[in-house]
């Protein structure tokens, strides 16, 4: 019954407002599910923040299959939901087709550029944030060996890894970086046990700071690093609180802000390509009470200096996506 109310209500709202649509926004989570402690959960946090502040409601769906991408987009668009925000690059090619069929609906896509007049494309400069995380890792390391554990072996995670390695080498050219990916199936995003095993393997090779860019798998990396007495670096959300005093920092990617902004603008969503990098505070490193003892003034000074230089263009962090290669290993 609530469904019929919703549809009728939306239709009525359309009829009354005639153009200036007053409708619910919609959020579509990717296959990982909204409670992945990372990417999708950050999107969920942004939507919930909007809900708490405005007191309004939104529709959401967690996808279960690839075929549902187009289905969810079309059904939400036909139900008059506006704007429709989707988290994940995998929507890209489908949105290109769907957006053209619903010119009055605004769409926002995170992590992908879709060139259409009614689409806001939000992309993050993860390589810049990871660069700063890499610098901090190299400065905090005593052994000169640091680690990287990725989730699934996809280009986006290689972009994280490439920025990280560049940062490490910038702070300590002699440092060694050990890289591992958790797996090749989507379960790689949610396998904390394997994350822990990889952490132990990297520790046995001398790593004493490990950066996890692996969704739910990272929980296992951070846990094992804390158990073994080495430092770890969290990702996407600020994960410093998970093991106070043992997480060096977190490379935050403000997916929540992107969703919140899109919901706030409502049907008047400004479209175009929005790149959120260090300059826009779309990515960055987290310092709070939990890790204050781990970072010293030299570290902050060096990282802030690099940040300013990246923003001014003096340092260019190579983006893996531009040519599918990374200049440093």
């Amino acid at each position: 019954m609530t469904l019929m109310h919703k549809i009728l209500g939306t239709a009525a709202a359309f009829a009354l407002s005639a153009g200036a649509a007053l409708s619910e926004p919609a959020m579509i989570y990717d296959l990982g599910g909204k409670f992945d402690k990372s990417f999708n959960e950050a999107a969920f946090a942004g939507a919930e923040k909007w809900k708490a502040e405005t007191g309004e409601t939104y529709r959401e769906i967690e996808l279960q299959s690839e075929a549902q991408r187009e289905q969810a987009l079309r059904r939400f668009a036909e139900a008059g939901l506006n704007p429709i925000v989707m988290a994940g690059f995998a929507f890209g090619s489908i949105l290109e087709e769907v957006a053209a069929d619903y010119p009055d609906t605004k769409f926002a896509i995170i992590d992908m550029v879709v060139d259409a007049p009614n689409v806001r494309s939000i992309v993050f400069s993860e390589h810049e944030g990871s660069y700063l995380a890499g610098m901090m890792a190299a400065m905090a390391s005593k052994t000169g060996t640091v680690g990287f554990i990725g989730g699934m072996d996809i280009p986006l995670i290689r972009k994280f890894a490439c920025g990280y390695v560049q940062g490490v080498k910038a702070a300590n050219p002699d440092a060694t970086v050990i890289q591992n990916m958790t797996g090749t199936t989507p379960t790689a995003w949610n396998d904390p046990v394997k994350g822990g095993e990889l952490t132990r393997a990297q520790i046995s090779q001398g790593a004493d700071v490990i950066y996890a860019a692996a969704g739910g798998t990272g929980v296992g990396v951070l846990q094992t690093a804390a158990d073994e007495g080495i430092l770890s670096i969290g990702v996407d959300s600020n994960q410093n609180y998970m093991h106070p005093g043992q997480v060096l920092t977190s490379m935050v990617k403000r997916v929540d802000v992107a969703v919140y902004d899109a919901f706030m603008s409502g049907a008047d969503l400004e479209t175009g390509i929005f790149t959120l990098g260090l300059a826009q505070d779309g990515v960055g490193y987290a310092v709070d009470d939990n890790n204050a003892a781990l970072v010293n003034d030299d570290m902050i000074a060096a990282v802030e200096d690099a940040k300013a230089k990246i923003i001014s263009g003096e340092i260019v962090v190579h983006d893996y996506m531009t040519d599918n290669t990374c200049p440093v290993k």
Binding site: D111, P155, R158, T184, D323, N324
Partner: peptide
């Protein structure tokens, strides 16, 4: 099954993906 997933992952990420595309497809 696992070998197939790994083979496909390798091919899509390294060989068959158009350059610059974020999506391993």
């Amino acid at each position: 099954n696992f070998i197939a997933a790994s083979v496909l992952n390798y091919l899509l990420v390294n060989v068959m993906r158009p350059t610059g595309s974020m999506d391993p497809a």
